[in-house]
Design a protein around this nucleic acid. Sequence first.
DNA 1: CTGAAAGCGCTAACAA
DNA 2: TTGTTAGCGCTTTCAG
Lengths: 341, 341
Amino acid sequence: MSQRRVTIADVAEHANVSTAAVSKVLRNAYGVSPAMQTRVQEAIAALGYRPHAAARGMRGQTYTVGVLVPDVRNPFFPELIEGMVEHLGATNYQVLLGPGGSEPESQSRSIDAMVDRRMDGLILIAPIVGRRALEETARAVPTVVIGRHGRSADYDAVVDDDQVGAGLVVDHLADLGHRRIAHIEHRYTRRGSPTTMPQTVRAEGYRRAMERRGLGGYVDVVASTYTEEGGYTATKELLARPVRPTAIFAGADAAAIGTLNAVHEAGLSVPGDISVAGYDNTAIAALGPISLTSVDQDGHLMGVNAARMLLERVEGTRERSALLTLSPTLVVRRSTAPPPT
Amino acid sequence: MSQRRVTIADVAEHANVSTAAVSKVLRNAYGVSPAMQTRVQEAIAALGYRPHAAARGMRGQTYTVGVLVPDVRNPFFPELIEGMVEHLGATNYQVLLGPGGSEPESQSRSIDAMVDRRMDGLILIAPIVGRRALEETARAVPTVVIGRHGRSADYDAVVDDDQVGAGLVVDHLADLGHRRIAHIEHRYTRRGSPTTMPQTVRAEGYRRAMERRGLGGYVDVVASTYTEEGGYTATKELLARPVRPTAIFAGADAAAIGTLNAVHEAGLSVPGDISVAGYDNTAIAALGPISLTSVDQDGHLMGVNAARMLLERVEGTRERSALLTLSPTLVVRRSTAPPPT
DNA sequence: CTGAAAGCGCTAACAA
DNA sequence: TTGTTAGCGCTTTCAG
């Protein structure tokens, strides 16, 4: 299997310097003369040397940022990831994604795996592991959590104001004249601290907004999952109510898609019979035939900022933990209209 | 930042054995008595020890499989990834994904990064790097390439028969009575060996099938990209033809979505005015309002097999390179119908 | 500014 | 079967 890889020793020999000198050049460390700098760089180029990240990690950094991706199918995550990659692509750091799955156990496994591989920093997208475990890893390696509300002294956080987002939807629907506005929530049946999860905040935001609009008596939440299937099932349930809702606010576009399918299947029309709104403003929502009213989170911006905040911690520029809250906007499309008269 | 991590030395001390013994237990290596086995395992549990993957990699393996993901937005890739994760989840190996981007340069960077981190094996999803470079990395670390046609002595490959798939679509449309069947191809303007790429084989399969059906005179290929925007642009171009096609076969669902948007925007209906077919049978294709006729590749199966084949190489069970070709099927939905009369 | 030497946590080869 | 020892490729003191 091929010849031995070029190592720092080869470069040192080729350039007639010590390995320590090469190491310094590699890291732009203090204390190298311009002459040596160029000598070493020439040797590196001549030999096609690439430092061995795993070995570097044994003493210093691995120059790797790990990103926990709970659900590889969630179409919102690519926005985040592209934001991170864009920001980190300009640095020496490499991004590696850990497919975490939707269970706390599998996510923990993935997180541990990244820690065990000596990643310099971690970005966790809406992790559903317990707060305790979260803070423990955050104390071991700089961590930015995306999507979970509530601040921590140990990790930085980037969140979108889900409560405001839910309010935008309820206001929009109420303004159109809807009263029977139902909500589809994502709920996992595990322990943890659910109040900090986006889905909980969205559901709570929905409730508060309904009350604020004097629609407290119409509050109707179905617990399901933020998946197409979850939306489908929940909608079936809603359509079977003695008195049907005139609008369904799904907590995520993925679920809203399932809602559209179920409504479609029931022979009802959107928005003629029922208005449907989603959350995340996924690319799917913008599709002509779908045209789903949805809350936009600017995932790209969230990703960029998460990466930026993480680097500040990795490089020690900032000590104290920070929380960045971004504001959502509502994108109105053709899936919402006044209720049938 | 927390206390020192538990190392193999701590475990050895706690269990009153040598570090070598612990190492052996860790790897189920030959030559450990049951007694020591349990002693060590108890110590591991007691201290909450997790081996340091990066350090292991310095001498042995990292127990990490790297997957190059060119486009995090492509909805077909999650199928592959879930297949891999499912298969590898039952082993000691961890999956990490490298976001490669759609440029050869960024992909190479990502691949190198995974090699530099001593991954035990690589799965490359439709990489667009040159064959030379591909074989070079394959000689450095066991590699399975997904989606590129043509065999290699250095790497294993898993492909779906794209030529057959394109033929299925053309046959279906021709059977419906279409003649003006246009095709949207993905083309990047770089060097490389494009004939082995799926998009090239699909386009070629389209051409051959058209000729086979006596429609050689109607061949109409627009070079664009397998993205929503690419499909949109290409369709705009097709709709501007003096004589419009009656059917558009987009080489990927993502592009087909763009096609649907463009057709929709032009005030035309699908399939009334124009039939549209995609490729990959993505989850989006199945959505009620979309209902896109598409070629199904069983990405899950491809992922599982890629992972299986890779492990065979990593663990040395198989020496010779292998090529696995799977067959596609056509899923007919409501986006295709006879041409307008 | 430069280099020698120690050691990061682990595994492999060898000795006991 | 078990333990000892020598590194893997790099960074980091700390002398020179």
